[in-house]
Design a binder for these strands. Structure first.
Lengths: 124, 124
DNA sequence: ATAAGTGTATTAACACGATTAATACACTTC
DNA sequence: GAAGTGTATTAATCGTGTTAATACACTTAT
């Protein structure tokens, strides 16, 4: 079941996306399952259908969902999901890694980081 | 010399930051050098002193600059610069790496990525 | 074929946050 | 104490992201 939190600063469509993604990853929803129609889900959550549409569209772009005009939205195959999501994350990380290289970071340091690097998080 | 481009969508303070950082990294400015005062630089670029102040403040937070009230802003030591910039980048990357782990990405795959991974960039 | 369901596209209103400005305060040096 | 420096606070402004309103296109079943 999807639950929205209006005190959360994150946009609605993002909350919907995360809810659905979690349900798909955890097996609450399985490949091939039909998702609620944009209007049905919008009505159920008392929000605009376009907001659901946006969530579905982005999930499709990420490979989690397959949309078919006139029929509905369906959960994509698991492998497809992972592949697409990986590409997305890696695309974001690549430029940062380039700069880290330029700053002299070594492959060894990076390997350590992948494990569970203990650093002070100096986020602004 | 700092040059601003008002057709650029990036904010002024960001352009100032990048200009200064580049000058420091390329050796046009060296550790210990005194930077122009916030008012002087603002006047020279015909912008508000607060904008320069913000640029300097963020560069200081990133370890590139040291500010001393009443005296001025100075270029920090090179090592400090790198350390701070690394921390910043790693802080951004960490959550992404966490998700990649959850998606089943292995240390080996990641090591390859560090080298020069050949992928299609599926940026939306 | 037509109605009722589905997803999609376009446009506009709205709100919030980032950016910049205005102004006053605090410190250092001469 | 005057003239330089950085700092803090507040407010105005402007963009952009988010959501809504509405119309369009496709599929299925009656």
């Amino acid at each position: 079941m999807i639950h929205l939190d209006y005190r959360d600063s994150r946009p609605i469509y993002q909350q919907v996306k995360d809810n659905l993604r979690r349900m798909m990853v955890t097996g609450v929803l399985n490949a091939g399952d039909k998702l609620p129609s944009v209007r049905a889900l919008a009505s159920q959550l008392s929000i605009n259908p376009n907001t659901i549409q946006r969530a579905y569209a982005e999930l499709e772009a990420e490979g989690y969902v397959v949309s078919v005009t006139g029929k509905g939205n369906f959960v994509a195959e698991g492998d497809t999901q992972n592949q697409a999501r990986r590409q997305e994350l890696l695309a974001k990380m690549r430029p940062m890694m380039e700069e880290l290289k330029a700053l002299g970071m070594t492959a060894e340091e990076f390997a350590v980081l992948w494990e569970g690097g203990k650093d002070d998080a100096a986020s602004k």
